[in-house]
Design a protein around this nucleic acid. Sequence first.
DNA 1: CTAATTATTTACAAAATTGATACAAATATA
DNA 2: TATATTTGTATCAATTTTGTAAATAATTAG
Lengths: 217, 217
Amino acid sequence: MYNILIIEDEKPISDFINLSLRAMGYGCEQVYDGEEAADKILEKRYSLILLDIMLPKANGFELMEFIRPMEIPVIFLTAKASVQDKVKGFKLGADDYLTKPFQIEELQVRIENVLRRYYKTDEILTYKDISVNVSSHKITKGEKEIPLTEKEFKLLVLFISNKNLALFREQIYEKVWDREYIGDSRTVDMHIQRLRKKLDLYDQLVSVFKVGYRLEE
Amino acid sequence: MYNILIIEDEKPISDFINLSLRAMGYGCEQVYDGEEAADKILEKRYSLILLDIMLPKANGFELMEFIRPMEIPVIFLTAKASVQDKVKGFKLGADDYLTKPFQIEELQVRIENVLRRYYKTDEILTYKDISVNVSSHKITKGEKEIPLTEKEFKLLVLFISNKNLALFREQIYEKVWDREYIGDSRTVDMHIQRLRKKLDLYDQLVSVFKVGYRLEE
DNA sequence: CTAATTATTTACAAAATTGATACAAATATA
DNA sequence: TATATTTGTATCAATTTTGTAAATAATTAG
């Protein structure tokens, strides 16, 4: 999970960013001036810093010099739009630059880009010779790529993340279908079938009578 | 042992939850407003938080933001049932959501689910060379895995959890079959039989004349 | 010790669950 | 819009589990 530090003195803007990023699944913290920022950065390793240029007690450029040696990616956030500023920012090691006001979607895209560039973490789950690239939704068994449908994919991820656990149909349904399970439906069973068939998991993805299914190590 | 913090300003409800959860074996503490809650959370690491949305001195959503970085699972408890609220809750990191009024049984189920998801502790019971992995529903005796049916499984769990206690047929029936015992049926006996056979418990799982059965240490 | 009661064993049929197949509805894609 | 893909349901077969009945064995109380 990524942790983002928001350094921005205008509270409404900061709060707005905070909420939006949290909604996207990022962990966020907010600070409102340069000193607080420095403290926070020393105390914890952030994945990314969003940095406003105009700040009380140390401006963004100064802070940038402070951050740079730590090799944390930084996106500048500012009302200043001059080319000189941009150049200065990039020279100091900024990874991106966003001019206020901006659409939150744009910020999201930039964050994702920066994080991908920086961390290149394709989350990959594996089970025996099956590997699941969660980010790209690609599944391979051995060398071969096996296309899975959405539900099959979610099922597989669920089971691999819960190896050896007997999962109740109810749990499965609520996780994969994301809504309440109203007893007695064969839907889960059917999809288990299909998953077994596509990945030849007949002996591994076993039924637990009266309970549900389990993926065996 | 799990510790649950109940953040709920309506004392009767809070007390009721407290009593019920204690009866289920959880450790519980109660606070009645946001500030108290924050203090408690800072002071001690809870396993799970039950959080009412409408609170004096900081509402549940605010509190949620405070809790989230600590990665403590949260179940929202509220009279508010709007979809927006639910979405908001989940986005802020709630693990589940329960709308008042609710059955205590439902709360129990949700708590168990969340705790299992979060702590993924394989609950393992043992008796001599038999081990019962409750999470995966697997039973081994020595090195060998012994498949049990659901009723047998429940029976075994019941007896291991009540070693050396003579259990009345009635009790057994009501625990395992989850419905009222209407006198004189050989059903329990039959299943005891099958369990004995599968796990070779003839000398340990003994009959108590006129009463029921007991698993001896 | 013996009759009466209670538990165990065996056998079997009923009930419930899961697997397989086929198909229609819903959804996505060209 | 037409086409393909995905998804959910219905159906039936296969399997497993479960409950009961009847016969047998064991235990208890008198």
